[in-house]
Design a protein around this nucleic acid. Structure first.
Length: 558
RNA sequence: UGGGGCGUAGCCAAGUGGUAAGGCAUCGGGUUUUGAUCCCGUGUACCGCAGGUUCGAAUCCUGCCGCCCCAGCCA
């Protein structure tokens, strides 16, 4: 491959850009990320964000953030604010290039008038139902509206009155005059403007008519001198209309639209409609529920934005639609967290252990490495004492040979501490194990015995006296099914155990003041971050992702 | 029965006529005070199918099959 920049991604869009730069069609790149402010951004949007901001940065140019706010009935300022926050969090900066389609309403109106004067647009009074009927079907051509050949002056007058608010919603609409027999339904005299008597988040009551997506998007691109207008595959058959409008308007630039496939992920849904439904029907706690594939949800879950960017980058950009395994995302999260997350100890399901030969009053602090993959992370002191807690799952009364943990008479290493041997098992009346008695080897401080004996298992622990308690939320896939049904039954695939609540977990005390936004590894368990639901006296942690667990896999095999 | 796309290993994806990259997963093995990490090894992908052109095709041609999108005054 002949390439001067082997580290840069290669895909058909970047190839197109290279070509356009090479032929001199453009000498820089202008792109844009154009969300409609009617919902929260999800990981699918991240693909578009990374692509658009990515190419602008790679080839010189800029990428703007443009709110496609042409439908006041569904949009809201709160979404605008949230979207900006999410894009920034993901790691992108639009600088001065913040735009709103609503900024162009006046220009768009003038252009509509221009089309009318050219005889390329007309005011129609077919009702929505009639219009659907006249449109024909996928296989049959449509019929022309009786209003189609109305005179220019009358159209001009009617359109002005639409703007003035003389008509009710749906009473009239401005349509392009193209071809009612086109195989491409978007070309069958598409509606350009409709009457919507609703206040707009930005323009208030100034307008009673609003441009449709098709009459706004390409023109906004042109006004911003966008060179490459990148969107998803479903807009492919809008491209002829996009081009038709630019061709028939005195547009200041000639953007080209390119389409790529959107991201699909297993075990979740990525359609705005469904995400809204999950929120509204309370299947999740909100847009930022850590189980949601929204950027705000992933953030609350503790996923570093760089992991998302990296994940998106690994997928590439193509036109073929597929469905990416959620485990791929999780793996990317682990990969980044493994390098950067500090290690801590936390016991999620505590089982008390008394070390009988350990002094009551010892004041023992052990050195624990903060991140074995990053020496600069240093180490910390962890208090040890006679009574500790270990993970209940790290003890078995009658363990199989390959269980490298605690069992009667078995010796294990307490991470960074001592070698201990289980000497007694204490049970309640019902026969449940409630406490372990152990002895420790005073010579093994730090975790190694002077005699060099091998201890296969190392388990984590917390000091009873020093630990802080917390609630921990363990998340799993939102859907048990890889691909939630495409029909109304899609909710049937919801995972009833997508969140497991653990109360009374015991954490290493340093976790009490873990800064928000920092994700740490609970050794041997996974990556966790503090949740905003928590308070100083009521810590709450979210599991970002578990560690890979080959032991669990081994057990599952039987 | 219309229009627009897409089909390379379980998933993502290179490849643009010269005889199939890479990543993830899987399965082995090694190292290891996280059964994590790390390291090493591991896949015959009939390149959707069938013909054709060519010395030679995943790459060109023809036909077929499968999947996705489009009939909002949503984007």
């Amino acid at each position: 491959m002949t390439d001067d920049s082997p580290d840069q991604p290669h895909d058909f869009i970047r190839e197109q850009i290279r070509s356009d730069l090479a032929t001199g069609l453009h000498d820089h790149v202008v792109s844009r990320f154009p969300p409609e402010p009617n919902g929260y951004l999800h990981i699918g949007h991240a693909k578009s964000i990374c692509l658009n901001f990515g190419v602008a940065a790679e080839f010189g140019g800029h990428c703007s953030l443009r709110f496609d706010d042409t439908n006041p009935a569904k949009e809201d300022q709160a979404y605008i604010d949230a979207i900006m926050e999410d894009v920034r969090w993901l790691g992108f900066d639009w600088g001065e290039h913040l735009h709103y389609t609503s900024d162009y309403f006046e220009q768009l109106y003038d252009w509509a008038v221009h089309l009318i004067r050219e005889g390329l647009a007309y005011v129609d009074e077919l009702s929505p139902e009639e219009m659907r009927e006249y449109r024909g079907t996928l296989t049959e051509p449509g019929r022309e509206s009786p209003s189609r050949n109305r005179g220019v002056e009358e159209n001009l007058d009617l359109f002005a009155r639409m703007r003035a608010g003389d008509f009710a919603d749906g009473e009239k609409a401005l349509r392009a005059k193209i071809d009612m027999a086109s195989g491409n339904i978007n070309m069958r005299d598409p509606v350009l403007y409709r009457i919507v008597r609703a206040p707009h988040p930005r323009t208030g009551d100034a307008w009673h008519i609003y441009p449709m997506y098709d009459f706004a998007h390409g023109q906004s691109d042109a006004l911003e001198h966008v060179t490459h207008s990148l969107c998803t595959l479903e807009f492919e058959d809008h491209r002829p209309l996009y081009d038709w409008l630019i061709d028939n308007l005195p547009a200041p630039a000639r953007p080209r639209q390119y389409e790529f496939s959107r991201l699909n992920l297993t075990h979740t849904v990525l359609s705005k409609r469904r995400l809204i439904q999950l929120v509204e029907e309370r299947h999740v706690s909100g847009w930022d529920d850590p189980r949601m594939p929204t950027l705000t949800g992933l953030r609350r879950r503790g996923v570093p934005p760089v992991a998302i960017r990296d994940f998106i980058g690994r997928l590439g950009v193509t036109k073929s639609d597929g469905i990416v395994e959620m485990s791929y995302l999780e793996n990317t999260m682990r990969e980044h967290l493994n390098q950067t997350a500090q290690r801590r100890m936390a016991v999620l399901d505590p089982l008390k252990v008394v070390i009988e030969n350990y002094p009551d009053d010892a004041d023992d602090e052990l050195d624990a490495v903060n991140n074995p993959n990053d020496e600069s992370a240093g180490s910390r002191k962890v208090a040890f004492s006679r009574e500790i807690y270990v993970e209940r799952a790290d003890f078995m009364e009658d363990p199989p040979r390959k269980f490298f943990r605690l069992g009667p008479g078995r010796e294990v290493r307490l991470r960074y501490a001592y070698l201990v041997t289980c000497t007694d098992v204490i049970k309640d009346d019902a026969g449940n194990v409630i406490e372990l008695r152990c002895t420790y080897d005073p010579e093994s401080r730090g975790g190694n015995a002077p005699d060099g004996r091998k201890v296969k298992g190392t388990i984590h622990w917390v000091s009873a006296e020093h630990a802080v308690s917390a609630e921990v939320r363990l998340y799993d896939h939102l859907f048990t099914e890889e691909e939630p049904g495409s029909g109304d039954d899609w909710l049937d695939g919801l995972n009833p155990n997508s969140m497991e609540l653990r109360q009374g977990c015991l954490l290493e005390p340093s976790l009490a003041d873990l800064p928000a936004g920092e994700t740490v590894q609970f050794e041997r368990l996974g990556y966790f971050c503090a949740d905003p639901d928590g308070a100083a006296d009521n810590l709450v942690f979210n599991r970002t992702v578990s560690l890979r667990d080959t032991w669990a896999k081994e057990k599952a095999k039987g």
